[in-house]
């Protein structure tokens, strides 16, 4: 394989961070597509970015706050209505400590 922008190790680490399960074919395909996309970013090298502060948000709004008061919200039934598994008014979650590293 020709040189990649993302190393195999970094790719595997990213799959894990993103909590995705990719089969080998899918992984190979996405890896090459990611490399292609990241190569497209090389146009940034043509721009002078020294002394340019980052823009995280186009609106210019800062620190939007509201009074810390209780407002109407879901009932317990509404909050649970879409949960695939509930137990005595709680959402049942998978056991996080049982997860095995692959």
């Amino acid at each position: 394989m020709t040189s990649t922008v993302i190393s195999d190790a970094d790719f595997a680490k990213t799959v894990k961070m993103a909590k995705l399960k990719l089969n080998p074919d899918e992984a190979l395909k996405i890896h090459s597509q990611l490399d292609e996309a990241l190569k497209a970013i090389e146009v940034f090298n043509e721009l002078d970015l020294s002394n340019v502060e980052p823009l995280s948000h186009p609106s210019g709004l800062k620190n939007v706050l509201r009074e810390d008061v209780v407002t109407p919200s879901f009932t317990q039934d509404q909050a649970l209505q879409n949960a695939p598994a509930t137990h005595k008014g709680y959402v049942m979650v998978p056991g996080v400590f049982e997860e095995q590293d692959s």
């Binding site: 970094d10 961070m17 995705l20 996309a37 940034f44």
Partner: peptide, 27 residues
């Protein structure tokens, strides 16, 4: 999946400055 992978990579430690931060500067 493709988009999640690229975004996760661009935001991850070690690559954030090269990708996400620079993208915000271009913005």
């Amino acid at each position: 999946k493709r988009r999640i992978m690229l975004g996760t990579y661009a935001l991850s430690s070690g690559f954030y400055d090269a990708y996400y931060l620079r993208a915000q500067q271009v913005r």
